[in-house]
Amino acid sequence: MEAPFKDAINIIEQIEEHGYEAFFVGGCVRDSLLDKKIGDIDIATSAKPHTIQSIFDDVIPVGIEHGTVIVRLKGESYEVTTYRVDGDYSDQRHPDHVQFISSIDQDLQRRDFTINALAMDKHGKILDLFNGKKDLQQQLIRTVGNGHERFTEDPLRIIRALRFASQLSFVIEEKTLAAMVQVAPQIRTIAVERITTEIIKLFAGGDVLRGFTYIKKTGVHHYLPVIQEHPSIIKQIPSSLVPLQSFGEIIALLHYIEKTVPIKTWIKEWKASKRNKQEAMELVEALTYFETTGLNSWLLYRLPKAYYAGFIRLTNSLWENSLTVEEIHEEAQQLPIQSRNELAINGLEIQQLFPEKEKGPWIRNLLNQMEKEVVMGNVINSKQELREWIRWNPPEIN
């Protein structure tokens, strides 16, 4: 059994010691079979939530009404969910009622795709009722049962299919794709925050262009915030697009493709955070400067280092460059100063050079000019050199 499962086996064993079944399920099983890095480990069990609460000391009832609790063990969180069958999905997210059951078979039947409808016991034996292993081998995304029903229950599953195509570089099965096209208009009913989570993962996928190929085929973009008013954006996605790692990067890219849509519109319609807005604005400013001037010391100085990697991903996507983060970090380390605080002359000293002048914006303007001259290597950062520069570039004082 792989390392990520070793501690979680203790949870399964304790559940079994109390007379109940428990299996690893979903993405962790899928990724294990694909030899991919395993993220969250989910467990399905015949034990009901209150029983799990009585077995374990540290349990968080995150979704107890739907049978889900979080078991904390050795600093890690494990989602444990009671076997269930779902009623109707009137809100197209949560079932109206949940019926707890004792059969893992029925529980797997309610899942979205065959590659996610796999269960594994503590010995590593796989329970595969819907040919999920075969679909993994054939690199195929296919719904469990009727695709129209699965997508109608929760239309977010359509975007999840696109995301898996991007992440896994899989093909979407023909009938599943047809059902996605039919149900796609219902995407408008989904909370935008849920869509955002999947879109971020889609953009981060190793085969992101495949994801966009399926977006076009299914017409999903006609039901996404902002993009539905500007569907040509999807056609303008660069063929050299590399995986992006944050929503700020995504907004920066989409704004750069369609500059008539302000960043604040993307932020508002997608209910993004202030942090996303700040990142997008910083990146767009850097991209605009780069397009006209190229990569230079001033760009590296002005752009926060936290955004260097995103900037590289975007420039390489938009202009098919081959810049690396290591290269620009190395260049940034060679800058004469890293912040204005390192200037050899400050505002007070500038004022003292012109004692007859009143304080005002001219001091800040002069500092701005000196800062850029020093960063660009035009002036040495010393009091003597800066004073000499000021003598030849006296401030304009109104």
Score class of each variant (00 low, 15 high):
D88A: 14
Q139M: 15
I101G: 15
E174R: 15
L177R: 09
T81F: 06
N131P: 00
G145S: 11
E173T: 05
P155L: 13
A117T: 01
I101H: 15
R111E: 02
I104A: 07
A161R: 06
S90G: 03
R157N: 12
L108H: 00
K122N: 05
L140V: 06
E153M: 12
Q99I: 15
D88L: 11
I158G: 05
A119W: 00
F130P: 03
D121Y: 05
F170S: 13
M180D: 11
T114Q: 04
D91I: 02
V183M: 07
V183T: 09
K125W: 06
I126C: 03
R72V: 12
A119E: 00
I158E: 06
K133S: 09
K122W: 02
T176E: 07
R150Q: 15
S77T: 09
T176V: 07
L108D: 03
Q109L: 07
F151Y: 15
L168E: 09
R84N: 10
D91L: 02
Q182I: 11
E149I: 15
Q182A: 09
I172G: 02
K74A: 07
E149L: 15
K74V: 03
L108T: 01
Q137D: 06
I101R: 15
T81C: 07
D86Y: 06
R150E: 13
H123I: 08
L177N: 08
S102A: 11
K125E: 14
K125C: 05
K125H: 12
K125I: 12
M120E: 04
Y83C: 12
K133E: 14
Y78E: 04
A117H: 01
I115T: 01
G132L: 01
Y83N: 10
R150N: 11
A119L: 02
K175P: 00
T114P: 00
L73T: 00
F113A: 03
K175Y: 10
Q92Y: 14
E149P: 05
A165Q: 09
R142N: 14
V98N: 08
R72T: 11
T152Y: 12
Q182Y: 09
D88N: 13
Q92F: 13
E79W: 05
F113Q: 01
K125S: 09
G87M: 12
A165C: 10
K125N: 13
V98C: 08
Y78V: 05
R142L: 08
V80E: 09
